[in-house]
């Protein structure tokens, strides 16, 4: 299984040269195995994705939620404009509106020149909740997680490895922070003993109290969550758009002293590829 990181930034893309090493595109990760690819989120990082169409003949884009930093790249993703390509979009269900209606708020004028219904590809929308489904060689679990608005995280299980993707998540929301009982931890089932977890690490511990309830994690809470779930390896993502490369390096040094002996972790870097399962 190959995991590729194409977008690492939260909220808004950045072109600041001081942030170029970790990358300025918003959320997008791909998972590949046996010629099949899953695209996780459609932030601006999706413009770098060139899916192999040879084997499956279809493209699957799994959206965690519909905040702009996770869908902004969709309108510029070339396969959506190819008439012979089958595109499947997966996103969380909500009882208040259909996925088509919610996506159309972005993919329609005045925000975008092309209507969702007019996209030339063969588009199929899938509304998911706490679900399990298969795509090619992958078994996928989705679970609602704590974030603002309907949001899911994903666990992708391949032949020999598993990866969980929870880029927007606030498991510590509440007076007590993370409750140390797996039954009471949002997202725990997704992360439980996975080979790799890509998780929200938007804030520092000092920043988090002022941003409580905004739907994101402190880096420390993400590390604690990962330790509780016995994650084998953690990549912190959804970097604050104002966080420079040098600052991320400094933070890594500080956090490594505290956590590294018990959990290998790194900050997500655009262009990084990770091979799992031998």
């Amino acid at each position: 299984m190959k995991v590729s990181i194409n977008g690492t930034r939260g909220s808004i893309p950045t072109t600041d040269p001081k942030s170029s090493r970790y990358g300025g595109n918003t959320s997008c990760v791909t998972v590949e195995e046996d010629g099949h690819m899953l695209i996780l989120d459609g932030g601006t990082g999706i413009q770098k994705v060139h899916p192999p169409l040879g084997i499956s003949g279809r493209i699957d884009i799994l959206l965690t939620h519909l905040h702009l930093d996770h869908i902004q790249g969709l309108g510029f993703f070339k396969p959506l404009f190819e008439p012979d390509i089958e595109v499947h979009l997966w996103a969380p269900f909500t009882s208040t509106d259909t996925l088509h209606a919610r996506l159309s708020r972005y993919l329609s004028p005045p925000l975008f020149p092309v209507l969702l219904r007019d996209l030339p590809c063969e588009l199929t929308l899938h509304e998911i909740s706490n679900s399990q489904f298969s795509i090619g060689p992958f078994l996928i679990d989705s679970r609602y997680v704590i974030h603002t608005g309907p949001t899911v995280g994903y666990k992708v299980t391949g032949k020999n490895a598993s990866v969980a993707y929870i880029p927007d998540h606030e498991p510590a929301l509440g007076q007590s922070g993370i409750i140390h009982d797996p039954k009471w931890i949002s997202g725990f089932e997704l992360a439980d003993q996975v080979d790799l977890l890509l998780h929200d690490g938007n804030y520092t511990a000092e920043e988090y109290p002022k941003k409580k309830g905004w739907g994101h994690s402190s880096m420390e809470d993400a590390l604690e969550f990962s330790k509780l779930a016995n994650v084998k390896r953690l990549i912190l993502t959804h970097h604050d758009p104002g966080r420079t490369d040098d600052r991320l390096d400094e933070l890594h040094t500080v956090l490594a002293k505290k956590f590294h002996h018990s959990l290998p972790f790194e900050f997500a870097k655009e262009g990084r590829e990770i091979s799992l399962g031998g």
Binding site: I146, L173, G174, Q175, S176, I179, K183, W184, F188, E189
Partner: peptide, 18 residues
């Protein structure tokens, strides 16, 4: 181990503050 739905987890977190 199956976790509770987030709606239940959030109710507990709210109850904990009351």
């Amino acid at each position: 181990m199956a976790s509770y739905d987030i709606e239940i987890i959030l109710n507990r977190q709210l109850a904990d503050c009351l």
